[in-house]
Computed example of a mutant assay.
Amino acid sequence: MSAPRPIWLTRPLADNVAMAAELERLGIATISAPLLHIESTPVSLPTTPPSALLITSRYAATALPDAWKNVAVYAVGAATAEAVSARGYAHVTVGDGELMDLLPRIAEEMHRTSLLYLSGEDIALDVVGLLAAKQVQVDRVIAYRATAATELVPELRDALHAGALGGVVFFSKRTAAIARLLLASADLTAAAARVDAYCLSLAVASDAAQIPWRKLHVAHRPTREAMVEMLRLHGAN
């Protein structure tokens, strides 16, 4: 019987390392080829604590100051909330992993007040505009930069050429878009027809669908745990 084909992990390196170890325990081989590289940026925070904070990535949590630990925090999902709690913040509201699902609660609870949004340099949603329409003032501070990869690593190119790649994981619309560009530049778009794509959400899958993958899979919840479970069920085949 032939060995299971590996799964391409596209997340930043630290996330890939943790996920690869978990998948290895499930008997799923992986190729770590990050499509985003994270770097912190200089952060200038106001001297007065905000009424509340919005954090949409665990990478932004590193910018949280010790002096604000009593400030309420809205975290987009469980992984982000865990990173916020690790900084000593006790009042954390946890979303289900989809920012659009969290915004109505913020709009209701923060009506006619303000909050500080710690984000990456590139964002998918105009949070400032969406909440301003609900009479919530948002001040955005960029806490990190996610730089796109510029080429596919040799191990991944070889696997695609040989039809030896079993799947790819996408946790964001941006990584799906980067994959499309890099596959095209390497003349490997057609090779995707032999690869399954595993997506965090329907929104991510809509971008991933611009590549002719063999099959698209969508996690039943937009969480890392649901992605691992989906790979356990399908990715080792």
Rank of each mutant, 00 (worst) to 15 (best):
L9Y: 09
L9G: 12
T10C: 12
T10Y: 11
R11S: 12
R11K: 12
R11F: 11
P12D: 09
P12Y: 10
L13Y: 10
L13N: 06
A14I: 07
A14P: 02
D15K: 10
N16C: 15
N16A: 14
N16Y: 06
N16W: 07
V17G: 01
A18T: 15
M19H: 06
M19N: 05
M19L: 15
M19W: 07
M19E: 14
A20F: 13
A20G: 14
E22C: 13
L23V: 13
E24Q: 15
E24K: 14
R25S: 14
R25P: 01
R25L: 13
L26D: 14
G27E: 03
G27S: 06
G27V: 03
G27P: 07
I28N: 12
A29W: 11
A29G: 15
T30D: 12
T30Q: 13
I31E: 09
I31C: 10
I31S: 06
A33F: 04
A33L: 03
L35D: 04
L35C: 11
L35G: 04
L36I: 04
L36N: 07
L36C: 10
H37N: 13
H37Q: 14
E39W: 00
E39C: 14
E39P: 01
T41K: 15
T41V: 15
V43G: 05
S44L: 11
L45S: 07
L45M: 04
L45Y: 07
P46Q: 01
T47W: 04
T47V: 10
T47F: 06
T48N: 11
P49E: 14
P49V: 13
P49C: 13
P49G: 13
P50R: 07
P50E: 05
P50S: 09
S51I: 05
S51G: 03
A52T: 10
A52Y: 11
L53T: 11
L53K: 12
L53R: 12
L53E: 09
I55E: 05
I55H: 06
T56E: 00
T56D: 00
S57I: 01
S57P: 00
S57K: 00
Y59V: 00
Y59C: 01
A60E: 05
A60G: 13
A60H: 07
A60D: 04
A60M: 09
A61V: 02
A61I: 04
A61M: 07
A61S: 13
T62R: 14
T62Q: 14
P65A: 07
P65Q: 06
D66S: 11
A67D: 11
A67T: 11
W68Q: 05
W68G: 03
W68T: 06
K69E: 06
V71C: 10
V71N: 09
A72C: 08
A72P: 05
A72V: 09
A72D: 12
V73S: 05
V73Y: 06
V73A: 02
Y74H: 03
A75M: 08
V76A: 03
V76P: 01
V76D: 02
G77Y: 08
G77Q: 08
A78V: 02
A78W: 00
A78Q: 10
A79E: 12
A79M: 04
A79D: 11
T80Q: 02
A81Q: 01
A81N: 02
A81V: 00
E82G: 01
E82F: 00
E82T: 07
A83W: 03
V84Y: 00
S85M: 12
S85T: 11
A86L: 02
A86H: 01
R87A: 06
G88L: 03
Y89Q: 01
Y89P: 01
A90I: 09
A90L: 08
H91F: 10
H91G: 01
H91R: 15
